[in-house]
Amino acid sequence: MKVLASCFLSPFAAVLNGTVKFQFQDDNWLKECYHKLMLDYPKFYKMDDLSKMAILSVELLKENAYLNNFNKDELELIFANSNASQHTDVKFIDSYTNIGNPSPSLFVYTLPNILTGELAIKHKWYGENTFLIASKFDTQLFENKLKHAQMKGAKHCLCGWVDSKVEKNGTLTQESFLFLVALNEENSTISEELEALFKKYKYLSTEKV
């Protein structure tokens, strides 16, 4: 198995295949990124931050063209994070405890796997979907799932670690790491490569750059 393309988004920068693509100035960095990518998808504004990050990440990855070449059933989606939908959960609780009424459009985003649904809708991907929760970015978990997909005959998987958490002081911790994996290559392990990419991208996308 082999990483064909990868990208990382944080509130500070967007990294594509090892290179910083944009840096963000705006507090609403997701909207800034949307405009920088010249995306025209009005539904975007109605999404939660997890879905927004996933949608933007795929647009970035698409610059490599690989993602346009798949049949509708071919691409398997394997996504994970550590905080499930905590960010939207907090907003939904606020809608009925402080604002007045439980908000239906917030409630539908109180599940982390909605982001894979949003990707499937935008790109007409009907393939297998899994959403997992891990205490931290877990390369072994992805490697296991990739191996299973390969054994069941899949050729490519789009994997992602997309997380958004509201901290106690109200600040957000957000990151989105997507990687497209080809399963027909010889290497049977991918953990080390993923670990190295994740570390490097995290470093490249911090404030200091």
């Binding site: 009005p42 109605k46 604002i99 007045g100 009424n101 908000s103 239906p104 459009s105 539908v108």
Partner: peptide, 17 residues
């Protein structure tokens, strides 16, 4: 505007609130 069924439910919330 291309709104959907969930948006319709938000209109109900809007009218109520």
């Amino acid at each position: 505007l291309g709104l959907d069924s969930i948006d319709a439910l938000e209109f109900i919330v809007l009218l109520e609130s």
